[in-house]
Design a protein around this nucleic acid. Structure first.
Lengths: 251, 251
DNA sequence: CGCGACTTTGACAGATGTCAAGGCTTGTGG
DNA sequence: CCACAAGCCTTGACATCTGTCAAAGTCGCG
């Protein structure tokens, strides 16, 4: 995973792209986003970006790498509840809920841009459409989490893995407006297990089933999808929940 | 579950109470909430209040009964991702995301107050604190869902059930500022299974284990908790994520 | 070259699902 | 007031999936 830091402006631009993908913003709003103050930080694999229960005064925009939101059992079992790729502001919700219930962990080397809550609230106050866009953004993430819950609660290991890969493929491919058939998943099999409510051993076995069926190959963190149709069927995947097409905002 | 309809004003007041529990609101905001236009509807057990994928122009405030949000697999397996008790606006997120990804189902006889999205957006526009309160409310629900995911992904059946009961007990007991040790769960064992990613048969067996251990009794939808301490331990429960204490809003 | 982190495998254990039948409750209509 | 039906709950026997433990193999990096 790339480790060279991205320029602040590039990070904000990716965030803006993400917002603009789901909400129509005027130029004033766009400028307000790009003018947000930031502070860059680096984290290594498995480092906590935000510890569980930590109170923060800023949100974390992922500028490079892969981060995960997680919850934890008192005996240390982790459940990753969301994955964040560059352009995602993983803990935007912390803006209105500073006492984070979840933690944020770096799954690869990660570059984070800290954005003060104050600045976000001010931007939302000044720009009505931005307030709605932030709110909407949080709701979209909640919708993704609901799908994950369906995944973990109601599908077997093979479908779960397939579903996660379909999702990642679509999210990575956004720019090409098509699913990406080969990409760097970044996370280890243990991380996959934490995201899917499985065991690393079982993830490993399930991956080899998928490989034997000729659906995909995962080698050294690089995923290659050989048969998108089959993968989609196994996953029972429908991309609608990702809201990857632009649509006008209400009101 | 009671079926006599509640007055519109009472429903809005419960919703306001819920918001005020988490956010400090001025009297202007409070009046704006109580002035929201509503339309009352009744639903019977297992009826869909909002079908999967349905596009709506209003949000649903639960005035009486118990409702659940759900996702569904293409072969019909359901996962309930959230539970809503009176005063909850189950699909507040639909205000900014009208193409609901999830469905809303009545788990008992339910009275719903429809509140037009327009009215909610207008109220948020006029009252900055209300906009933040709505946003926050959605984030709190997302936080609860994250805990559910930990529950489904990382705990065994006994803990899952215990955790759900602890949560419901706290949510029901809000007014007494303490957990409620006996209450009507409303949902069938099949519904519990859908909420916990289990099978009705296994829920049944797990309940009888809990009963044999003297922790609780569930008879005819009425839950009695005999040993709150033990239940909490089994569940690994910590109520912080429910945000049941008031706290000032940012900014 | 060697260490550490990750992946792969095997044998076995345990939790949960499946199928199928029977028992209870509750509400309804005669 | 009784009989019946529908929906729910309960139980048993058995199948399957996933977890556990432990060891060996691989890969990348210093």
């Amino acid at each position: 995973m790339s480790t060279r830091p991205v320029r602040t402006h590039v990070g904000l631009q990716m965030f803006l792209d993400r917002l603009a993908l789901r909400s129509t913003l005027g130029s004033a709003e766009q400028e307000a986003v790009l003018a947000l103050p930031t502070e860059s930080r680096q984290f290594g694999t498995n480092q906590d970006i935000v510890a569980l229960g930590q109170r923060t005064t800023h949100a974390c925009l992922i500028a490079a790498g892969l981060a995960g939101r997680f919850e934890q059992t008192s005996d240390g079992d982790r459940q990753i509840t969301a994955l964040y790729i560059p352009g995602d502001m993983g803990d935007l919700p912390s803006t209105v809920l500073p006492r984070a219930a979840s933690g944020l962990v770096a799954l690869t080397d990660v570059q984070v841009l800290h954005v003060p809550h104050d600045a976000l609230v001010q931007a939302a106050d000044r720009h009505r459409l931005l307030a709605l866009a932030f709110w909407r953004d949080c709701c979209i993430d909640a919708g993704i989490m609901a799908q994950w819950m369906l995944n973990v609660g109601r599908r077997d290991a093979r479908s779960r893995l397939a579903h996660l890969f379909c999702e990642l493929s679509c999210r990575h491919g956004t720019r090409e407006r098509t699913a990406s058939l080969g990409f760097d998943v970044g996370m280890s099999q243990a991380h996959l297990a934490d995201a899917l409510g499985l065991t690393p051993v079982h993830v490993n076995r399930t991956l080899s089933v998928l490989r034997q069926q000729g659906v995909l190959t995962l080698k050294g963190r690089r995923l290659t999808i050989h048969d998108w149709g089959a993968l989609k069927d196994i996953a029972d995947f429908n991309a609608a929940y990702l809201h990857l097409e632009r649509q006008p905002i209400d009101g």
